[in-house]
Design a protein around this nucleic acid. Structure first.
Lengths: 156, 156
DNA sequence: ACTATTTTAGTGTTATAACACAATAATATA
DNA sequence: TATATTATTGTGTTATAACACTAAAATAGT
């Protein structure tokens, strides 16, 4: 119990169970995010960029205003403007103006962006399969449920 | 099931259970890290800085070489040199040379650093109590166990 | 209809992170 | 012992993140 945690941190005791959960959560997230980033870098994009592409792909052929993109991100980034700027440089997305609300700066994914996403997708899915290789169906459901209860109060 | 996740991402369906677990993990980690960072910023330090202080506190009055600090971090940072530089500016840690191995740049926490850590500690613990307010004892143990099994292969 | 407030985007600046590289010391090998 | 390899740290550079601020347009209130 807590053996892996001890190995990771080279530490042999912890404050209490809460701290143990907290640390395990951070470590697991870091572990998986690293793997994720490795995949993304193979395609020349970063995690936040992938996130934006994924969101825009969901509403293609329409686009989203900047604020909407932020609110749909896993980790809302304050600097989405520059993330989009960089995606535009690579022609993976494009900006256009909303006729309804002139303040809004809309962004939509391009065909090149979709093509890239389709290449990335299988590798992301393979990464997901790793999880099912270590946890069975009911365990994954249980884990998902426990996690949602932690951040759940926020979205109540 | 997956209701909170849907609310967070404003998305109504997911690839599969693996993706659901992955997303919930990232979101929960982000959620807790944000709370953590808010606490830290009240004391004028960042998360990586807190991490280093916590590690050095564990071996006080001795110190650790840079490489050892990195290997004990939750998220190993490549740029620990500068993190330490900043901590030295605030006199929270200090450098000294190892007589055994002249390559090593040792760092130890100062009394001021320990004092700060003692102030931060109750607030971090309060954050931990949040977890026990939403998950009971056996649930936290279960969660911890499931998480360790995900990153566990790495430290085998 | 006019004014105040709110929402939204982008920019400028500073700090931090990521990555490659150089320098020095220890260790391994011949 | 002499040399090659490895380990460790620090620096230089570039890119990204964080934060405050400005400007413009929409909305609310009078």
């Amino acid at each position: 119990m807590g053996k892996k945690l001890k190995q990771w941190l080279k530490q042999d005791k912890f404050e209490d169970l809460n701290q143990e959960v907290l640390l395990n959560l951070f470590i697991t997230s870091y572990f998986l995010r690293s793997k994720h980033e490795t995949v993304m870098s193979k395609f020349g994009i970063t995690m936040p960029q992938y996130n934006v592409l994924r969101i825009l792909n969901g509403i293609y052929p329409d686009g989203h205003p900047r604020s909407e993109i932020i609110s749909r991100m896993i980790e809302p980034a304050p600097d989405v403007t520059r993330i989009i700027d960089n995606l535009i440089k690579d022609k993976l997305v494009e900006r256009y103006n909303s006729s309804a609300d002139k303040r809004l700066s809309m962004t939509r994914i391009t065909e090149k962006g979709i093509k890239l996403l389709n290449q990335v997708h299988p590798e992301v899915k393979a990464l997901g399969k790793y999880i099912s290789s270590v946890l069975n169906n009911s365990e994954r459901k249980k884990l998902s449920n426990l996690l949602e209860r932690i951040y759940g109060v926020l979205v109540d």
